[in-house]
Amino acid sequence: THLCTFDITDLYTMLPQEESIAILKQFLIRFNQTHTRGMSINTIESLARIVLTENVFIYGNKYYRQIKGGAMGSPFTLTLANIFMWHWEQKLVEKQKASNELYGRYIDDIFLTSNDSIESLHDMLENANNYHLNIKLTREVGSCVSFLDVQINNQDGNITTSVYHKEASEPYIVPFKSDHPRHIFENIITTSLLRAIRYSSTLQAFNHEIRALKLMLIYNR
């Protein structure tokens, strides 16, 4: 079984505006949301167009209007990106279901499995990469891949998981001598421990993550 992860390059700023609005309308109709918080689909469509097309910014003492994508950090851009990906992934999801394979997505990060040949898998990903001019994939295929902060490894048919740390990540957190509220430090430790417990499928992986956590805490005394 091949493991594959990929993400969409610059999804938020590459969304085709008018096409995304059309997909939003299709999404609302598909799920019978003819009125949302008292607003009709046509009203939502009009408001969405204003939010997308009336973004301006200043660069070099000149005003520019954004003609592609949405504003970074905007809650609406996140929602619209999710809906756009819902539309984009339909054929891929159908193929995975028909093949009884795994498929999962978190916004623009996708994980899937495949028992096809590696050539067929790359062909499928290349077709997905060429499906839309604005949507380009950065992919990773193999027996060991990372998805978000999880490392997934296929060892002769046995799936193991562990915590994934990016190569560029540094073992630094908020220094304990800083004036942050004390619960911040407690939450850092609790969250790190929970992640180690949930993501480590073997005792070896868990112990490795605990050692890394201890070192991180020592660095930040």
Rank of each mutant, 00 (worst) to 15 (best):
L3N: 09
D7K: 11
D10M: 08
Y12T: 10
P16R: 03
Q17F: 01
E18N: 15
E19V: 02
L24G: 01
L28T: 06
R30K: 14
F31A: 01
G38S: 10
S40P: 01
T43D: 11
T43E: 14
A48I: 05
F57A: 08
Y59Q: 00
Y59F: 10
Y63I: 12
R65A: 05
A71L: 15
M72C: 09
L80T: 07
A81V: 08
H87I: 00
E89Q: 08
Q90F: 10
K91S: 08
L92S: 06
L92P: 01
E94Y: 06
A98D: 10
L102P: 00
D108L: 05
F111H: 01
F111N: 07
S117N: 03
E119K: 08
M124T: 14
M124N: 12
L125E: 02
N127R: 15
A128E: 15
A128R: 15
L133R: 15
N134R: 06
K136T: 06
E140N: 13
C144A: 13
I152Q: 03
Y164E: 04
K166R: 10
A168S: 12
I173D: 10
V174D: 15
P181W: 04
F185C: 09
F185P: 02
N187D: 14
N187M: 10
S192W: 04
L193S: 07
L193V: 05
R195N: 12
A196W: 05
I197G: 05
Y199S: 11
Y199I: 00
Y199W: 04
S200N: 07
Q204M: 00
R211G: 06
R211V: 00
L215A: 11
L217D: 08
L217C: 08
